[in-house]
Amino acid sequence: MTRIVAVLASLLRGLLQAALIVMLTFFLCRVMPGDVVDVLGLEGGLTAEQQAAMRHSLGLDRPLPLQFADWVGHALTGDFGRSIRFDRPVGEMLGAALPVTAKLAALSFCLGVALALLLAIAATARPSRWLDAAIDLVNTWSIAVPTFCAGVAAILVFSIWLGWLPVIGGLLVPVLVVGLDNAGQIVKPLGEELREAVLLPHVRTARAKGLSPWRTAFAHVLPAAMPVVLALSGLVLGGLVAGSLTMEVLFALPGLGSLTLNAIHGRDYPIILAAVTLIAVALVAINTIVDMLHRLIDPRVS
């Protein structure tokens, strides 16, 4: 019972977070200097009267809270409005962009977590200077080298100097770059956590029982380290969003990131709002799942 209440509470908090983010985005979009009509006006040479008429028809001259309430009302029924620039339903545009980003994010996430786990487990099982150095290297790489720099360097080295890959297209390079970045963010705390988990008293008990190293590792060390692994994978998501954004721009992938960025430059509010809402809801959902998994693994958390 308390478990259900706790899960509901964390879900509620997540929804509150998402709602606040959407609200913040809405008002930030509207206070930004120059609106969509200005942008279109510059491009199409509209007169002041035409602009005013256009604002009125788009409902942009109404009070902000009213506009927001309107938008929320529609969004809740699944209608995110139409793109002002492209005059297409926003939902359709997001639907086209989402798979690209989802694929990139999912692949990089798996690569990153797998690489980090592999390095951390290896370093715990067989401590060596080389593995420690490798962990340090990956960690420092992710701190010091922005993903887009790595992407540019990859383009420079592989496609221009070596002529191996076409500059544009293919998910391979973006996934490698973002995955390595993700791995670097978590590999160090992961390694420290595993090293501590090996020294836990209950692991010593398992050894005193004479259990085999495999059994000790999987039944006793890994569960103890799992909460931290989960928390870290949640942490990676932030890097994942930033990484996908730059990679999509650099490699001209038609994903959520490019869509949002273009919309920001064109002041295409419905798209910005819908995209940020989507990202926020996804992040909140993942955080909630991580939280629930944590509760599932650790019986002590009520």
Binding site: R13, G14, L16, Q17, A18, L20, I21, L24, T25, F27, L28, C29, V31, M32, P33, L237, G238, G239, V241, A242, L245, I264, I272, V276, I279, A280, L283, V284, N287
Partner: peptide, 21 residues
């Protein structure tokens, strides 16, 4: 702070710049 935390730093900065100019 907790409510804003769900948004990754880069995205938050991006949105803020959008709003602040």
């Amino acid at each position: 702070i907790d409510l804003v935390r769900a948004l990754p730093g880069t995205l938050l900065a991006l949105l803020l710049i959008v709003g602040l100019g």
